[in-house]
Amino acid sequence: MEAAVRPAWIGLALAVLVAAVAVQPSPAQETVRPIAPQDRLSGSAFMSAEARALQADDASNPAMLWVKDGEDIWARKTGVAERSCADCHGEAGASMKGVAARYPAFDPASQKPVTLDQRINICRTINQKAEPFAPESQPALAIASYVGLQSRGMPITPPDDKRLKPFLEAGRSLFGLRQGQLNLSCANCHDALWGGKLGGSPIPQAHPTGYPIYRLEWQGIGSLQRRLRNCMTGVRAEPFAPNSIEFTEIELYLAERAKGMTVETPAIRP
C-alpha cells in the first residue's frame, strides 16, 4: 500500500550508526563485550504496548492460527507409515513440553547439531516416511509453532553436551564477524547498540525467545532463520543457505546467549 523506500532520515540514522561503529580500522573479528546476564531483555521489551497486548491474548494473536494448523498436523496420519505425530508422541502438551527450549540439539545420526525444524523433519522422513516440510513452508511453520507453544513460559535450556561445543564456538565467531557491504557484525548492533534506533525501529538484543514469530512487517509468521536472513540482507551480506550449518551454529550461540530467558512462542514482533 505504500512505497518501500522509507523516509530519508532513516538512511541518515543508519549512516550515523555505520559511522559510529566503523570508524576504527577493524580486524574482521573483534570483541564486543557481550550483554551481562542481568541486562538481558526479550525483544518484547522493545515493543509498543499494543504489540505486547497482541502477544498476550491468544484470542487475538494471529500466530495462533498457525498453532491451530499445527495441532491438526500433529493428529493427522500421513506418509507411507500412515502414522501421526500423536501416534508415537501422544499428547503434545506432555511429550513436547520443554523440547523447543533445548534446541538446537546434537543429532547422533548425522553427528551434527540440528534445529527444531530439522528434528521434526527427521521424524517426517524416518518415522512417517513422508516428504520433509520445505523450509519456511506453511506446514513447517505451523508444526514448529505448535511444538514451540508447548515450551511457552519455560526457560531456554541449551543442552550441556560436549559434542555441541565446537559448533557453539563457531556460532559465537559468526556473531562477531563483520559481514556484508556495510561491514557490520551481529554483535556491533545487538551487543553494542541495543536500545538504540535504526530508522525508527529499536535495535533489540537478538534473543530467539519467540520463534516462530508473527512479524507485523511480514504480515505473517516466519522462522528464526527468516529473521536472521533479514538482518543479513540488511547489511548487504549474502545470507547463509536455509538449513545450512552456519545458521544452526548461530542459533546455538543465540540459545546459549539467551540461556534461562523465557520462551514466548508464538511471539509478535514489529
Binding site: 543508519l14 549512516a15 540488511g234 548487504r236
Partner: peptide, 9 residues
C-alpha cells in the same frame, strides 16, 4: 547502501 538497508534490502 544506507537507503537500501533502511528500506530493508
Amino acid at each position: 547502501d544506507v537507503l537500501i538497508l533502511g528500506a530493508g534490502a
